[in-house]
């Protein structure tokens, strides 16, 4: 199946929105605006998934990233009140070069993966299979890639437990009101 010009136009528009929003995430001075632009970026990616006949991925993208992760970011930003005039000095030394290096590594990796396995536009068979997206993904996850799936799950669980342990660390001399707040969190 050849890529037609409406497809290309559509892709260009959505990509433009995604990239523009991603830039705003980094450049925006207001933390809440950054979080919102991140949500918009993730939303655009979901739209691209739909255009590529992957509605299941789109739904998961919306539920997990746009729906939960970014809302949690917002929750933390609002709770801590870091929404105005953030201090722009770096607290982590060497953060910028490290970020640049990792970004380059990621870009090279992505391009490499696409070069090795990518096939360009969605294939006709893939579109025809689009209806059974969920079954196909489930089959792949729970048979072919079961080990990878389970191994990925383990660090996530460990991280979650670690976060709980760190957050619940007993602090000395707790007043009554503080301990009640802790119980509700």
């Amino acid at each position: 199946m050849k890529t037609s010009w409406p497809d290309i136009l559509f892709f260009a528009i959505v990509c433009g929105i995604a990239l523009g929003a991603a830039l705003r995430v980094v450049l925006s001075k207001n933390a809440v605006h950054s979080a919102l632009m991140l949500a918009l970026t993730l939303f655009s990616v979901a739209v691209i998934f739909i255009a590529q006949s992957a509605p299941f991925l789109a739904a998961v993208q919306m539920i997990v990233y746009a729906g939960a992760v970014v809302v949690l970011f917002l929750f933390v930003i609002m709770l801590l009140g870091v929404d105005k005039n953030e201090d722009l000095r770096e607290t982590l030394r060497g953060q910028r070069p490290a970020a640049l290096g990792l970004a380059l590594l990621f870009a090279v990796g992505t391009v490499g993966v696409i070069r090795l396995y990518g096939s360009g536009a969605p294939q006709a068979e893939a579109i025809a299979l689009g209806a059974d997206n969920v079954q196909l993904i489930a089959d792949a996850l729970f048979t072919t890639y079961l080990y990878a799936f389970e191994i990925t799950a383990a660090p996530l669980l460990v991280a979650a437990i670690a976060a709980v342990v760190l957050a619940k660390r007993e602090r000395p001399a707790k007043s009554l009101s503080e301990s009640r707040e802790d119980g509700s969190a």
Binding site: P55, A59, M62, I63, A66, A68, L74, D83, D132
Partner: peptide, 25 residues
């Protein structure tokens, strides 16, 4: 009739959270 029907509902209700949260902020 979307083949991901019920997931669409979950996705939309997670977008709905933004309305109230952002209104508050």
């Amino acid at each position: 009739d979307l083949n991901i029907g019920i997931l669409f509902f979950l996705a939309m209700s997670s977008i709905g959270v933004y309305g109230i949260t952002l209104a508050g902020w």
